[in-house]
């Protein structure tokens, strides 16, 4: 059983819900990323998504676009992200998922990527623009290295598509709350809950909901029906706001704790 599967299984036994923060590696620095991984784990993260920056993040809104630009200016690529995860691994055993677009991973080389990711302590990958139809080879490589491949499902996904995705997915399913790019929004649509219900009819894998979640109330709402709430832009925005603060990790950690229903 993978570390991700174990984590969700334990959580289910204890009847708890999960919290999945996202950060972009190298924003504002790689040192900060290592500290943030450790601090977010302490703050109660079930799993941490670490963004590998890409020059053309077509599924991202302005907040994560800016974070990617800052990370790229810092010269951050796949190799640097793997090194920072390996560093953080000495201090935490929280599951880590690399979150990226296909091209930077493809250019690094799937085999080399998976071998080195496994060694660094990465647990899985989520590739925004890699649909199940195009994923066979990449999925096989991940599987050989015992890494999970996490897929997105969306309110637009048809029943046939949900089944296709469930066949290929491992670890957990990431349900996109609404049609749109990443970013903060004031209220979550009912489409997220309907989608999770449909996913549950298709697979036993845990389901996380993301896109647009930025408050404790929204996390609590998602916890009613899903296994975990995924918070990206809100944390990245907090990170951006305090980028120059000497206690950046503590501030982002405090913000993360504030998102968790008591």
């Amino acid at each position: 059983m993978s570390r991700i599967a174990e984590t969700f299984a334990r959580q289910r036994e204890e009847n708890r819900r999960g919290f999945i923060p996202f950060i972009t590696a190298g924003d504002p620095t790689l040192d900060a990323t290592r500290e943030l991984i450790v601090e977010l784990a302490r703050a109660g993260a079930t799993l941490i998504e670490v963004g590998v920056p890409f020059s053309d993040p077509m599924a991202d809104g302005p907040v994560i676009q800016r974070a990617s630009e800052r990370a790229l200016k810092n010269g951050v690529g796949v190799a640097e992200v793997l090194a920072v995860v390996a560093d953080a691994r000495r201090e935490t055993d929280v599951p880590v998922v690399l979150f990226s677009y296909y091209n930077p991973l493809l250019q690094f080389g799937a085999e080399r990527l998976c071998a080195e990711a496994r060694r660094a302590g990465v647990d899985g990958m989520l590739v925004t623009d890699l649909a199940p139809e195009e994923s066979a080879e990449f999925a096989a490589t991940l599987s050989r290295h015992e890494l999970d491949l996490i897929f997105l499902v969306a309110p637009t996904s048809t029943g046939v598509r949900l089944e296709r995705i469930a066949e290929r997915a491992s670890g957990f399913i990431y349900a996109v709350s609404r049609a749109g790019v990443t970013g903060i929004q004031s209220s979550l649509s009912a489409s997220a809950e309907r989608l999770v219900t449909r996913v549950r009819d298709t697979t036993k894998l845990p389901v996380a909901v993301g896109f647009g979640i930025s408050t404790r109330e929204q996390v609590a709402d998602v916890w009613r029906y899903a296994d975990a709430a995924d918070v990206g832009s809100a944390i990245v925005a907090e990170n951006e706001k305090h980028a120059d603060a000497p206690d950046l990790d503590a501030r982002v950690g405090r913000f993360a704790r504030g998102l968790l229903p008591t």
Partner: peptide, 14 residues
């Protein structure tokens, strides 16, 4: 070729 897009666009492309 192929289709390399976020899942939200896959069904609309179909």
């Amino acid at each position: 070729g192929g289709r390399y897009v976020p899942e939200t666009l896959m069904a609309p492309l179909e």
